[in-house]
């Protein structure tokens, strides 16, 4: 599948991607694994894979029931244990995916809630960010430190009242470098705003690049972080 190098902005809709995945025989586990790797390697929080997580949960639940049935009906222990292993692997993947997102939310809660990254969170994650993270942290800092500081230094967001912007909010470092792998040829790709740095991304290549410059490719699923 050669992707046109001219129009770099083409974005695959989620449905289309699922369809393609089905046609290529990619399982949801495979997709979840990709989401997990990308999420782990990317400095900022990525779009929540709502449909994928839902499907994975359904499959896990189904298999849990099947395993239970097997145990009751006295199916061979070997078979049961193999299914149990498959179940455990899927569970680990799903848990780790959700967990890495929670870690990012805890770290960048204020930044996320101020920017449109907020829309990348699931409903539950938004609730977690608001009530479990931001509110508690604000209250804690307020009570333990900020209320005792002189006037002008009491903001949780600013160093002092003279700061023009929120300079006390931890932000993900988008300038960081990431390892990425191409599945299909992406074509010549501009790395810098100035345009003097161009790499030709061919299929199955492995590069270390600045996350900021390939952000779009990660979001559209044309490149994988490893």
């Amino acid at each position: 599948m050669a992707s046109g190098s001219g129009s770099g902005s083409e974005r695959w809709s989620e449905d289309l991607e699922t369809e393609v995945a089905m046609a290529m025989g990619t399982t949801d586990v495979e997709l979840l694994k990709r989401a997990w790797r990308n999420e782990k390697a990317a400095p900022e929080i990525l779009q929540f894979e709502a449909a994928l997580v839902l499907r994975a949960r359904e499959q896990i639940q189904l298999l849990e029931e099947t395993v239970e049935e097997f145990t009751e009906n006295g199916v061979d222990d070997l078979v049961v244990s193999l299914y149990q292993m498959d179940l455990d692997r899927s569970l680990f993947l799903l848990r780790s995916y959700l967990r890495i997102r929670l870690q990012k939310i805890e770290k960048y809660m204020i930044h996320i809630s101020k920017t449109n990254l907020w829309n990348r969170l699931s409903e539950q994650e938004q609730r977690f960010a608001k009530s479990r993270c931001t509110d508690i942290m604000e209250k804690h800092l307020e009570q333990s430190v900020l209320s005792r500081l002189p006037y002008g230094y009491q903001s949780i967001l600013k160093q002092s009242i003279s700061s023009e912007e929120d300079d006390m909010v931890p932000e993900p470092q988008l300038d960081t470098f990431v390892f990425c792998k191409t599945k299909h040829a992406v074509g010549a790709f501009q790395l810098d705003d100035t345009g003097d740095e161009i790499v030709d991304l061919v299929a199955d290549d492995l590069y270390v690049l600045r996350y900021k410059s390939i952000r779009g490719l990660v979001e559209s699923g044309r490149i994988d972080l490893v």
């Binding site: 990431v178 390892f179 790395l191 590069y207 690049l209 490893v226």
Partner: peptide, 22 residues
């Protein structure tokens, strides 16, 4: 250095070199 090409580097090798490289 804006890009480092490491074609065919394997997963474990990536993982080991990542902290230094980055």
């Amino acid at each position: 250095t804006h890009a480092v090409k490491l074609k065919n580097l394997s997963a474990m090798e990536v993982n080991i070199v990542r902290p230094f490289m980055v």
